Amino acid sequence: MRVYGVTGWKNAGKTGLMERLVAEITGRGFTVSTVKHAHHSVDVDQPGTDSYRHRTAGASEVLLASGQRVAIMQELRGAAEPTLDELLARLLPVDLVLIEGFKREAHPKVEAFRAEANNPLIAPENSTIRAVASDTPLELDLPVFDLNDTPAIAEFILHEVGL
């Protein structure tokens, strides 16, 4: 499966870039899935729903199905967080999986960078970053794209993964 990441520090524009890339790449006829890493506790279920009641009763896995979507919630219950490879193995086949976060993993990435966030660039210390998408001009030994030039960033990623 072809994978490519978008990484950067908090408030760097990662999620907006991911959203635009998914729309751009699917608009070109490719299928795309995403993986998003959260550093905080997250719950996509709501108290009072049947699925929430199943989970809190002790179910290890709850599969919620409707005519519009399927959601699988898996409780770790003290087990280790799955690795990125384990998470990718759970996905249905698509042309490209875009990964938000996971900056220390080995897959190739574009770094989102906003000057106003006042964070250092990750790229100089991380060889998995192949380009930077920035809201300010930068002098780097990597391609630098305007953070809002989604078509150019998408073209770069598609070329990198051979699509």
Rank of each mutant, 00 (worst) to 15 (best):
P47G: 14
L21V: 05
T56E: 07
E24G: 13
F102G: 07
R55K: 11
V32P: 09
E100A: 13
G58M: 01
S66G: 06
Y52Q: 05
D45C: 06
E105W: 13
H40G: 02
T56F: 01
L76M: 10
E24Y: 04
E81T: 13
S66M: 10
R90F: 02
D45F: 06
L88N: 12
T31E: 14
Q68T: 08
I99F: 14
P93H: 14
A23D: 09
L98K: 12
L64N: 13
P93D: 09
V70Q: 12
P47M: 07
T34N: 09
R20H: 15
V44Q: 05
H37N: 13
S41Y: 06
M18C: 13
A65K: 04
A38F: 05
D95R: 08
I72N: 06
F30M: 05
R20N: 08
L63H: 04
V32W: 13
D45E: 15
T83F: 02
G27S: 08
H39K: 02
P47Q: 10
L76A: 06
A71V: 14
R28K: 12
K36M: 13
V97Y: 14
R69G: 12
G48M: 04
A38M: 03
G67S: 12
A71Q: 12
L84E: 03
I25K: 09
E61T: 06
D43A: 06
H40C: 00
L96Q: 10
V94P: 11
G101T: 04
G58E: 01
T49K: 15
A89F: 14
A80F: 00
G101F: 09
V35M: 12
E19C: 15
A38W: 00
E81K: 05
I72H: 01
K103F: 07
E100N: 06
R55V: 04
A80G: 03
F30E: 05
I72G: 00
V62L: 05
L87D: 03
G101E: 11
G29T: 10
A80L: 04
R104W: 11
D95V: 10
V62K: 11
H37V: 03
Q46W: 07
R77D: 03
H37F: 02
S41F: 08
H54P: 01
V70W: 08
G58T: 00
G101S: 08
S60W: 00
T83W: 04
Q46N: 06
L98V: 10
S60G: 04
D85V: 10
V22E: 10
S41H: 06
L91Q: 11
I99E: 12
S51Q: 11
A79F: 00
M73P: 01
A23P: 01
R20K: 15
S33E: 02
L64W: 11
H40F: 02
A71H: 10
R104Q: 10
A71L: 14
F102C: 05
L91A: 14
G27F: 12
S41A: 12
L91K: 02
